[in-house]
Amino acid sequence: MNQPLAADASPNRQRRIVVRGLRKRFSDIARQEQIIALDGIDLEIADDEFLTVLGPSGCGKTTLLNVVAGFEEASGGEVRVDGQSVIKPGPDRGVVFQEYALFPWLTVEQNIEFGLRERRVPRAKRKARVRQQIASVGLSGFGQRYPQELSGGMRQRVALARVLVNDPKILLMDEPFAALDAQTRSIMQQELLRVWSADRRTAIFITHNIEEAILLGDRVVVMTARPGRIKDIVAVELPRPRDVTSAEFNQIRRHIAVLLEAEVQATFAAMETGQPP
């Protein structure tokens, strides 16, 4: 299923990420069986697009992100970023993990500085950029704290700052707000949109929350239960900031909920019979 770019695409919109026929198999050695996580994914993502990916748990949405990030190798097909085949992770594709993945032995400042230091950016320049980044995600005054001393929302701000400071072309987020409480999640969604709107870098955001997917995304990719395929791609043509209580928003929500419901049922049915769907 190959969706064209949104109709209102401006002429200088580029295809940043192209996923073609992507397949991913895992072998479960303990059970001696092959798990097909992704079964033929085709997707094109524009350079200024915010794409959200929605699907039942275990549908392979995290696997999709991991392949784009370069953490896992495709079993078939390919992922290209600006025409280059993805073979390994790199600072051009910043990843924000659900579990934060901050280095616990480094302070907030040192965590954010990590990528710059690794790429040998001169110290003075490094410090200036870190300071600026800390301010832009609302962490001023917390630079010397350790991650253990911060709340979940604060930690995720650090994780976001840690990748943004490297000025990545692409932002990959794997259910980054799933572990946060509802209020913090809502604040973080707004913050993310504010930061993203400033330079509109390519973003892929994985979630299992329908409202979050519609609130954030230019398009919402709905995935099937395992083996993961694209069931539908829903364009969200509502102006931001979006009102989650508006009639248009809820129309889209209902549409996606119906699509997803069938897949969630399929996942449960598979769990009960022990058969792949």
């Binding site: 990030a69 370069g70 953490f71 390994k88 992770p89 790199g90 600072p91 594709r93 910043g94 990843v95 993990f97 579990e99 993945a101 901050l102 280095f103 032995w105 990590f114 990528g115 690794e118 790429r119 840690r162 990748v163 490297n166």
Partner: peptide, 25 residues
């Protein structure tokens, strides 16, 4: 933690720095 190794690679760590900067700490 595999996740920390991934995070470091994503941030552009040079492979030989993985041991001193991530694994040892």
């Amino acid at each position: 933690p595999k996740l920390l190794v991934r995070a470091a690679r994503m941030l552009g760590i040079r492979p030989h720095m993985l041991l001193p900067r991530v694994v040892l700490p």
